[in-house]
């Protein structure tokens, strides 16, 4: 699949309010951590250029609000996702329990062409804290039952494992991307608007 064309990978981060979605994204893209990120309202995204398997890719990471009622608006952002990152807080068991519904919701709303194979990655965040409640074994077990989702334990604050987790996200997304290129006509949004090559030559008088 080696090609010079730059690929755009769309990644969605989901999980309960306060599990650290914005923090993980910022740590990965900007190498920064702040205690003072505001609660995400609406949606935002950050982009990062990276090299995966010798290919230059741009990863567009989408961050949305964690409170359940705002998810109905998420569909516009989920569409065309190449990978979904599910985040929970290892100190808050409830945030782990809701992973199931986040996953289901995503599959319903994003309506991927091939839901069976849409890649997920699970991140257990805040392992720097001492009051950990959800064990590695339990989380790993859940991931195993869900078609062997890759699982990472991270700390956005101390930048533990964040890079590794997103590298896997990119690889998974790129696999998806490679599949997609077999059906290029289903993805008109990947037409490069900047180049004029896509425009029909106007050699007709009408």
């Amino acid at each position: 699949m080696a090609s010079g064309k730059k690929v755009l990978l769309k990644v969605i981060i989901l999980g309960d309010s306060g599990v650290g979605k914005t923090s993980l994204m910022n740590q990965y893209v900007n190498k920064k951590f702040s205690n003072q990120y505001k609660a995400t309202i609406g949606a935002d995204f950050l982009s990062k250029d990276m090299v995966v398997d010798d290919r230059l890719v741009t990863m567009q990471i989408w961050d949305t609000a964690g409170q359940e009622r705002f998810q109905s608006l998420g569909v516009a952002f989920y569409r065309g996702a190449d990978c979904c990152v599910l985040v929970y807080d290892v100190t808050m068991p409830n945030t782990f329990k809701t992973l199931d519904s986040w996953r289901d919701e995503f599959l319903i709303q994003a309506s991927p062409r091939d839901p069976e194979n849409l890649p997920f990655v699970v991140i257990g965040n805040k392992i720097d804290l001492e009051n950990r409640v959800v064990s590695y074994k339990r989380a790993q077990g859940w991931c195993h039952t869900k078609n062997d989702i890759p699982y990472f334990e991270c700390s956005a604050k101390d930048n533990i494992n964040v890079e590794q987790a997103f590298q896997t996200v990119a690889k998974q997304a790129l696999l998806q991307e490679a599949d997609v290129e077999l059906f290029p006509d289903q993805f008109p949004d990947r037409i490069d608007l900047k180049s004029n090559d896509n425009k029909p030559k106007s050699d007709c008088a009408c």
């Binding site: 309010s17 306060g18 205690n35 003072q36 990120y37 609660a39 808050m92």
Partner: peptide
């Protein structure tokens, strides 16, 4: 719990 999470990140 939701309030607690948001209070710590409002206009700090």
């Amino acid at each position: 719990s939701l309030i607690d999470k948001d209070v710590t990140r409002t206009d700090r």
